Amino acid sequence: MKVLLVNGSPHKNGCTNRALQEVAAALNKENIETKIFWIGNTPLGGCIACRQCAEKGKCVFDDAVNLLRTEAYTADGFVFGSPVHYAALSGNMTAFMDRLFYSEFLGNRNKAFYMKPAAAVVSARRAGTTAAFDQMNKYFTIQEMPIVSSRYWNMVHGARPEEVEQDAEGLFNMRVLGRNMAYLLRCLEAGRNAGVPLPTQETPVFTNFIR
């Protein structure tokens, strides 16, 4: 089994990466393969609602979004991490998540993410973590992804990776998150092996609230 950990920080080896490393190490101890995917620090444009992904099966802007999608099909679970900017995800990570999830839903009917466990990780110097954490989790719920929790909200604090090392509780929560992810992945695998089917799906219904 494999978990993709997505680093949405402009700093490849910054605080967010340190948190993801701790999650990955816990997963590796549970014999789960991991890979950290950095979205890079080249500015990413947001979704322009062109809906060409419905025809092409991928985003019309060929960048980190499509690179991640290619790997997503081979993954069994996901951890998305971002620094906190103004009590929200980083601008690049917000654009990345918007386009990744929207284009996958329209273009491939959510095959890369449906019923695959996901977790959010955020890092901040001081505050804004819970708002960013809530923002990230909304992407998972709309894609029918089981959300993996830790013992506390999945966040670390520090302005530099060296300061994150001092956040003993934050790193503890990252390790718990990794172990909980491994456990849920094994439960899902056991269910598949036992012949437990996925939920019955209905045709989506979309309602516009206008008269």
Rank of each mutant, 00 (worst) to 15 (best):
L4C: 08
P10Y: 11
H11Q: 13
H11C: 14
K12H: 09
N17S: 13
V23H: 08
A24H: 04
A26D: 11
L27S: 08
K35P: 11
F37Y: 06
F37P: 01
G46Y: 02
R51W: 09
R51Q: 12
C53H: 01
C53Y: 00
G57V: 07
K58F: 10
A64I: 08
A64L: 01
V65P: 10
N66S: 07
L68H: 05
T70C: 11
E71N: 13
E71P: 12
Y73L: 14
T74Q: 12
G77R: 00
V79L: 06
V79Q: 11
F80P: 03
S82T: 11
P83T: 04
P83R: 01
Y86W: 12
G91I: 15
M93W: 12
M93T: 02
T94R: 15
T94L: 12
D98F: 12
D98Y: 03
S103F: 01
S103G: 10
E104C: 08
F105K: 06
L106A: 04
L106S: 10
N108R: 12
R109M: 08
R109I: 04
F113G: 03
F113V: 08
Y114V: 02
K116F: 00
A119Q: 04
S123N: 05
A127T: 15
G128F: 04
G128R: 00
T129N: 13
A131S: 10
A132R: 08
D134R: 04
D134V: 10
M136N: 03
N137H: 09
N137G: 03
K138P: 06
F140I: 01
I142Q: 15
I142L: 13
I147F: 00
R151Q: 14
V156T: 02
V156R: 05
E162T: 06
E162W: 14
V164Q: 07
V164T: 10
E165R: 14
Q166Y: 15
A168G: 14
A168R: 11
R175P: 05
M181S: 05
L185C: 03
L185P: 00
G191M: 10
G195H: 11
P199H: 01
F206N: 07
N208A: 15
F209M: 15
F209V: 15
